[in-house]
Simulated scan of single mutants.
Amino acid sequence: MTVKHRAAIDTLVAYKPGRAPAAGRPKVKLSSNEMPFGPLPSVLDAIARAATTLNRYPDFHRLDLTEALAARHGVDPSQVVVDNGSGALLQVLASVIAGPGDEILYAWRAFESYPIVTTVAGATGVTVPLDGRHTHDLPAMAAAATDRTRMVVVCNPNNPTGTVVSRAELNRLLDALPDDVLVVLDEAYWDFVTDPDAPCGLDLVTERPNVAVLRTFSKAYGLAGLRVGYCVTRPETADLIRKSIVGFSVSTLAQAGALASLTPEADVELKQRVAHVVEERARLTGELVRMGVPAVPSQANFVFMPMPDGPARFTAFEERGVILRAYGTDGLRVTVGTAEENDRFLALAAELLRRS
């Protein structure tokens, strides 16, 4: 017998993480948009030192990390909220901004957590298809907003397609929405953006009263296993989040690792690692296009390949030792790995994806 619960939860499609290699079977995992390199040595040292204090609770308010992030981004600490991943912050925002009878608007296909956090909040999800460039159709999103819309999510770069909207397009969307509708800019992959016309959400926070930016240490910083993300927004919105997050939700190790990642020493190596990803991203895209494989130009650490037979192609890759991410009949996504991992993927792509 199932306990009584909200009927809407029965309709949820649970989040499915990227497939991991089975025990004892060596495979190349390019399914979860992880950084292919481990934590920086200085970060590991900071984590090891912090481990000696694990008999104590972590800093409830994440003060040192909050202040460091505020200094880095040139905002007041009252505008920064740290939690255990940007996904957790998205869930809190959905719950404090919207509820039964309200609408949360987002593009599709985009990050698979969006419909989950919307349903858990009790709100109604309104989806707008991506345009022909596999990019957010911001004019259509503006047209889809109603007086029930409480929150609009823009994933930029978009997961899984890697596309970005332009600064002008985003400003037109913001102009079209009331100032009391929160616009959440999910910038988990911002560190990999090289397009000079891509808008930086942090700039918009200072200009607009209704913008919240989500960023994470899981991607470029290589700390996916620690679960640290943060939100930068106006102080009033930040206060709503602080009232609602779970206490002590960012561990001592996570705070220490994230804080050590913000030092000048770590910045140098981080930029080198990001440069590798950007260079390899271009190589992957160029080789796929040369093979005749559709590949969407990406600003993230992955490349999306639209194809209706994605699940079958996914299986063929996995049987040969490379794990990708399939999105039903929409396509396949490959994470940018090390040069050697990318070579292995490309060798298989020439066999399994090449168009005659």
Rank of each mutant, 00 (worst) to 15 (best):
V274M: 06
V193L: 09
L262Q: 08
L182C: 13
A107F: 05
F217V: 12
D239M: 12
L332G: 05
G229V: 07
A123S: 03
P36W: 11
A143H: 03
R133E: 08
G85D: 01
K29R: 15
T135V: 05
G162Q: 04
L353E: 10
E319L: 14
P139L: 01
L253N: 10
S113A: 14
D267L: 11
R109V: 14
M305L: 15
V278N: 07
M35H: 12
L226K: 09
F60A: 12
P21C: 02
M291Y: 12
T216Y: 06
K29E: 15
L90Y: 05
P160Q: 03
R242Q: 02
Q91N: 10
L54E: 11
E207L: 11
D102H: 14
F248Q: 07
A220G: 09
T263W: 01
E318Q: 15
P129T: 03
N158D: 15
T315Y: 08
A68R: 11
T161Y: 05
G122R: 00
Q299R: 04
L214R: 04
G38K: 00
K219R: 15
R273G: 13
A275Q: 07
F217Y: 14
T194V: 15
L346I: 08
V250A: 06
A143V: 00
S31V: 05
V154N: 06
S218D: 15
D203M: 11
R72A: 11
D76C: 10
P129Y: 01
L44N: 08
L284C: 13
M1K: 05
R333H: 02
S42K: 00
L284T: 13
A339L: 08
T66I: 12
R6N: 06
S249Q: 12
A88K: 02
K271I: 07
P41F: 03
A94L: 13
K29V: 14
P306D: 10
D203F: 06
P264F: 03
N342H: 01
H136F: 00
V165H: 12
L105R: 09
K27E: 14
Q255F: 04
P157H: 02
A121C: 07
V303K: 01
L202D: 14
I241K: 01
Q272M: 09
F37K: 09
L170F: 08
T127A: 11
A326Y: 04
C231V: 15
D197Y: 03
V278L: 08
Y189M: 15
A300E: 06
